[in-house]
Every structure is written in C-alpha cells, then in structure tokens.
Amino acid sequence: MLATLASTHSGTTSVRSTNLRVAVNSSYSGKSDLSHGLVLELTVHSQDFGQLCETAYRWLTQGAQVASVQQELDQLTHDRPVSKVGFDSVSDVASRREAGDLWGYLSVAPVESLNVLYNPFTSRALEWLRESLTKRPESAGMDVGRYSDSGEISDSLIRLAVTFDEDLPEYVMLSYFVDEVKLVDSSTAAIEHERLLGVMEWACREFNVVFGHTSYDRPDRSTEHERFLRGPAPWRNTPNWASMLRGYSWLTVASADVVRALGGSGSLRNSGAFVEVAELPCGSYFLQATPTYAEYHDERVLSVYQALQPALVEGEFRRPSAAPGQPPTHMIIFDEDR
C-alpha cells in the first residue's frame, strides 16, 4: 500500500486508487455481539507549534477530503449560518433534514471551557477552525454523516479529530475513527479500508509521523499493549518514540531508530510478520500486518508481537476486566500466549 511513499512526497490531497478487493475472514475471532469503535492514531512531532497547528488544520480539512472517497464533502449543503465564536449545540449546525441528506460539522473543545463549540463544515467556517487551533484547544474534530429515516443525525460516515496535550507541547495526535463492524462486514469492508488506508497513506506522506497504531478507542488513547500494562499513564510514553514502541497493531508506524534497533527494515521484512514494510518520507516506517483488518488475529498477532517485542514499552501485565461490554482481546498477546 505504501511502498512508493518515500519517492512520492506531494502537497496535494489526491491519492492513487487502491482498487481494494476485500474478502472478509469468516473466522475473525474478534467479532462479538457488540460493536466497538476503532481508532487509527498518528503521533506527529514538531518543536514548531505553528507547524503543529497547520498539521491539525490540514488533517481536518484535506485529510477529510481524502477520506471522502464517495465525494461526501462535495454533497454537503452550504446554506447553514456560521458563528465567529462557534455554536453551543450540534442542533444549531445540523438540524433536522430529509432522510438520506448529508450533515457535517466542525467541533472545537477549548482548554478554558467545559463546552464544545460547533460550526457547519463549510468553507466559510474554516477561518474559525484555523483560528481556534492557534489557541491550542484540547481537541478539535470533523464529522460527516447521513440523516436517518426520521431526519435525525445518525452515526458518522467520516470522523477525524486532533488532540493537543498540555504535557506534550511538541506533539499533536491525529485520529481517524471507524466502527469495527464496518471493517469486517462484506457490504462495507472495501469502502472502509479504502478510507482508512487512503487517509493514513496521505498523512504519512505529508507529516512527521513518529508513531502510529490502530486500537480500540478509549478515553486515555492507550494502545492495546498499554491497555493491559500497570504503570504510568500512556501519554508518558509518547516522548520515547525514538527508543521504544507504545504498542503493536494491524497498522503500526515505528521510528527509524526503533526499526534500526530491531535489526533494520530487512529484518522486519524477513520476519514474515508483515505484508508491507515501507519507509516514509520522514524516515519512520509503516508496518502492515495483513491486507485486511479481518485477517489480523491469532498467529498473525503473535508474529507481529514477536517481531516488535524487543522495542515494546515494558511493564507488569494485568488480566482483562470481567466487566461486560469490554472490547475483545484478540489484538494483544498475554504471557501465557507467548
């Protein structure tokens, strides 16, 4: 997927067609009766806050356009009013419409307020978004979806976000969210893989991505590996991207120093754990375990773990919670499984 990245750096938002043909693996061990959200999170590093702001802005605008593989953004209406300070409610920017119509909005969570501010996803609101990002909010995002049969806002078709952490002033986290079911269901898997892999390819080509992972979405933004480790909060591991990995997953981005410590890209290719090992323009490496998400379980997870284990952040493992509704544990290797 990303083999040509190192030689195709570009400032445009277009990506080549992936022509994905997805065969859903019926033995997918992670399926459950509950739907769980997945997040692709990319850690971008820069000592220049202005550059981090520009990265965040481009992720929420150009990145959203890349993910709009069925031209959803082009179908949005632009007759919504725009507020210079932001609206207090989603209903102010995406009120009831006809079933099947598209809705879209931008959101910003300022540091100094418990409120979230909104504006419609239109060109007229982009100046508000850019200015809001310069104030280093806790987070900002964009959502696009279709109105339900009753004319109400339904689940997002495209959802991207950025997160700033006051304890990590040199970083911005770029997130792309997708429902796990959409990646394994035969009616949606192809288009959802095209969205996710397309936006990841674009971002890895454009930005200084020093770490990346695909994990279940949780408030502390932990990887699957960190989820079961006792010890410091996950954010404390972020600055150590040059010497360790916060986790391993279906799609992983590792720094050049980490890959070198693991024996180099050739060693990772020869491990048999990855279908793709590609150097990025920023020097990091993109590692893809299987062609599709549905294939990433059991022996494939173990192979990735064994290939990356020497670089993983260390700690004492704890067993999964017995509480109902928790995401499955098929993407993590426990001591007895090694």
Results as ranks from 00 to 15, higher is better:
Leu2Cys: 06
Thr8His: 01
Ser10His: 07
Ser14His: 03
Val15Thr: 08
Asn19Arg: 10
Leu20Asn: 14
Leu20His: 07
Val22Asp: 03
Tyr28Leu: 12
Ser35His: 13
Leu38Thr: 10
Val39Glu: 11
Leu40Val: 15
Val44Pro: 02
Asp48Val: 03
Glu54Arg: 14
Glu54Cys: 08
Thr55Cys: 15
Thr61Phe: 12
Thr61Ala: 12
Val66Asn: 00
Gln70Thr: 11
Leu73Asn: 13
Leu73Thr: 11
Thr77Arg: 08
Thr77Asp: 08
Asp79Leu: 06
Ser89Gln: 05
Ser91Val: 12
Ala99Glu: 06
Gly100Gln: 00
Asp101Gly: 00
Ala109Thr: 10
Ala109Lys: 12
Pro110Ile: 10
Val111His: 01
Tyr118Cys: 03
Phe121Thr: 05
Glu127Cys: 10
Leu129Gln: 05
Ser132Leu: 06
Lys135Met: 09
Lys135Gly: 15
Asp143His: 14
Ser148Pro: 05
Ser150Glu: 04
Ser150Tyr: 06
Ser154Tyr: 14
Asp155Leu: 12
Asp155Cys: 13
Leu157Gly: 15
Asp165Gln: 15
Ser186Gly: 00
Ile191Ser: 07
Leu196Lys: 05
Ala203Met: 04
Phe207Tyr: 15
Val209Asp: 01
Val210Cys: 04
Thr214Tyr: 02
Asp220His: 06
Asp220Thr: 04
Arg221Lys: 13
Glu226Val: 05
Glu226Ser: 10
Leu229Tyr: 01
Arg230Asn: 00
Pro232Ala: 02
Pro234Lys: 00
Arg236Gln: 14
Asn240Gly: 03
Asn240Asp: 02
Arg246His: 04
Arg246Asn: 00
Val253Thr: 01
Ala256Ile: 03
Gly263Lys: 02
Gly272His: 09
Gln288Gly: 10
Thr290Tyr: 13
Thr290Phe: 09
Thr292Pro: 13
Glu295Met: 15
Phe317Gln: 01
Ser321Val: 10
Gly325Asp: 09
Pro328Gln: 11
His330Phe: 07
His330Val: 15
Ile332Arg: 08
Phe334Cys: 00
